[in-house]
Amino acid sequence: MSVPLIYTAAGIFLFLLGTYGLVAYAHLLRKILAANIMGSGVFMAFIAVAGRTPGAPDPVPHAMVLTGIVVTVAFTSVALALAVRIARTSSRVHLSGRDEEQ
């Protein structure tokens, strides 16, 4: 098993771990954190799977992942602003229709 494949596999596991966190936790901040971990997993798989070319590393996936990181930070900032707004208007830290304290 080559080195990039180890990281690709780790990326896939991070993605699934994040998916679990996003589904299993009710606290909005935790959901956002989980989505970020999912994103990191995708980026890691992307760089690693494209890093198997012989010779100098391929710059195109690097540029794409940079774009992905920036897009994710934009999403995260809006998600957090929404979560803060929800906490301030209705004193909730989770979506409606779920039990408190979960």
Binding site: T8, L22, A35, G39, V42, F46, V60, P61, F75
Partner: peptide
């Protein structure tokens, strides 16, 4: 909408990564 959207787009992007690889 946002959380569903994030889950959807990251899943899509992982597919793109495999295709590029």
């Amino acid at each position: 909408y946002l959380l569903a959207g994030l889950l959807g787009s990251l899943s899509y992007l992982l597919g793109v990564a495999l295709i590029y690889g």
